[in-house]
Design a protein around this nucleic acid. Structure first.
Lengths: 205, 205
DNA sequence: TAGATTGTTAATCGATTAACAATC
DNA sequence: TAGATTGTTAATCGATTAACAATC
């Protein structure tokens, strides 16, 4: 792997490649080309080759890329060649949906705890999980050394909960609350807000 | 408004500005500056001024932007100064969460129908909605002239459902299925895949 | 060998930032 | 008037594309 700094925009495309390759592998395909992969993900072949070549020479002239080999490499680069523990804060509808989501396990993630501050929810179960008291969140996350959180609390609570998560050692937050979070440089945030995503499309209608 | 083509990357930031401004307005704030707004959303003041100025001169030197005026203008530009009908396809956990989501109404969207192909779900209710038979989807969407869909079906079904939606006149798809969709140029897609979003952050951990 | 496709370079294209005159 | 902040220009920075030698 290259020691130079890799632009964030490239890192952002790798999971898309990974997902498409995983799907090809599931379909029993052994080999692909930058051309073919590009058609699947809607990105130019040149860009895919350039992105991948930032990390090494993973292809072969004339034949393209071995899918399983490239999958291994991409997983290694993205550090999803392991299973990350994830905590979920906010046991509303969205929290329930994420807790029941089957797509995490084989993509590198495993939910280990769920927190809420609603006294009526605390102690009840979602699937195998017992909803825990948000007051115990910091110590519990610290003790379990969890670095990733999904945040599905109401917008007015999101910033203060995020600060507690960071205090507890969390370094990556998937934020479902419809609000921009203020976090230090060493903490990453990804935003999922359906209304915002829809508003990115209405302009073109 | 300017007649030149506005880059997609700028359009993508406007909903973020809109959301932050809406929040300021809710807090009773009347005026803001590019500097202040930038601190809220994590974008440089220069970029915010440049983005906004693509569409007109909405600020005043010395005082900044009137929040309600800028809100109106951004809503107009993004075409969310109206309510868009949205259909929801896939009545799983994620579909339920979206159906119950309270955040659409005051941001320009209104769910009008829910479809699924599971015979046991068809006819049952989610909130006020009766789940409809996916076999009736095309004609129903056509008749109602719905242009926006949220897709929460399993990955293997997503492409073929998307094609039916497009055939029915849908031009914007919010895709929750973990797969890249192949669509014509006149159709917009936004992707929400929690695992992909998480994988964009693990690289940095 | 002939054909295919990579990895990489150079050229192009586009986005961001810095700076400041204009002006409220 | 003095101070603040916009809108815009020019400079910088970064990303994408086209092209092709290398090579499987």
């Amino acid at each position: 792997m290259n020691a130079e700094k890799i632009p964030d925009i490239i890192i952002g495309r790798l999971p898309v490649y990974l997902r498409a390759l995983q799907r090809m592998a599931d379909n029993g395909i052994k080999t692909t080309s930058s051309q073919e992969l590009g058609e699947h993900v809607g990105i130019s072949a040149a860009q895919i080759r350039k992105d991948i070549s930032q990390f090494g020479e993973f292809g072969k002239q004339g034949t393209g890329y071995s899918i399983t080999y490239l999958l291994d490499k991409l997983r290694e680069i993205l550090k999803v060649d392991r299973i990350w523990d994830v905590t979920l804060v906010g046991a509303g509808d969205m929290g329930h949906a994420l807790a029941n989501y089957q797509g995490f396990q084989n993509r590198g993630f495993h939910i280990v705890s769920i927190f809420d501050n609603n006294k009526e929810k605390i102690g009840t179960k979602i699937g195998d999980f017992t909803i825990q008291d948000a007051d115990k969140m910091i110590e519990s996350i610290k003790a379990a050394n969890v670095k990733i959180a999904m945040l599905t609390v109401p917008a007015p609570a999101a910033q203060s909960v995020a600060e507690k998560l960071i205090q507890a050692g969390v370094r990556a937050i998937l934020n479902y609350a419809p609000i921009s979070l203020n976090v230090p440089n060493n903490v990453k945030v990804q935003y999922i807000d359906p209304a915002t995503h829809l508003q990115r499309m209405t302009y073109y209608l």
